[in-house]
Design a binder for these strands. Sequence first.
DNA 1: CGAATTTGACCCGCGC
DNA 2: GCGCGGGTCAAATTCG
Length: 309
Amino acid sequence: MEFTSLLDTSLDLNAKPPRIFDGNPVLKQEVPSDFIQLGRNVAVKEEKGALMEELKRVNEENRKLTELLTVICENYNELKKQLTEYTSKNPASKKRKAESSINNGSINHGTNSHDDSSSSDEDSSKKPREEHIKAQTSRFYVRAAASDTSLIVKDGYQWRKYGQKVTRDNPSPRAYFKCSFAPTCPVKKKVQRSIDDQSILVATYEGEHNHLQPSKIEAASGSNCCVTLGKTPTSVSSSGATAALDRTKPKQNADNARNSIRKIDSPEFQRYFVEQMASSLTKDPNFTASIAAAISGKFLQKNPETGKW
DNA sequence: CGAATTTGACCCGCGC
DNA sequence: GCGCGGGTCAAATTCG
């Protein structure tokens, strides 16, 4: 079974099976004689049978991939749970390194409540800088063309760039923006390409706007999709390619860690996560290769007799 | 010409 | 105390 072909047939897990024979000119065609009509009907039936077989096969592959993705989701959740437990048991663990390792994780789709909590668990009332970190932070993932180097995330607000840095753990530069209403509005954001998928921009927002959006114009045009700074924990742009997740208040650390896991366990998240993974798989060849390797590893682990993992 | 962006220098916290 | 790295500042440059 070729993995990529399997993926191609599994892109839209919620799509209805295609209505293959709708509008088929052969079926609508007027025929001059019963004989020709009969011959054509036989040919159409054969073609239909072959296509139905193909459809069946595709559906089966689709189902298998869905199962695989579910397993990956479960493993991901399990690892996340373990990480949460570990960080809560080891509050003195190296903060910065822990953060970077989390950020380096293969697909950290916006669930940033843990690294936030790890940074504010200890000495929460220490310094002004710590208070600044305590300001509401959120992380958004925006799909953008890999060739697009602008690091601009259109979110309806106006931003002024005040710095750019290349960080150690990610070769892509990180851009620093302040809300153009500063100093009245204290909101800042950082934008950096995902280390795993160069077509994903990771936008980290700090603080909350104390004013309305300068423009209500939809910013979905151009190479970037629109991100909405909604209050909901999960929101997806109309294109479906943009993820906006986990707008979490760091001060609710412990609860958030649990809620985050609960959110991850929710069927909505599972479905969304599967869609995101499928999207990533088809768009990033490296990621495809990595997941293919991981899945093939799973196949090898599978018990051939029971057929279970 | 003013606003926005770029970019090197500087500051500060953290780990060793 | 020193070096490293992330974040910010501000002068220089670019753009509309």
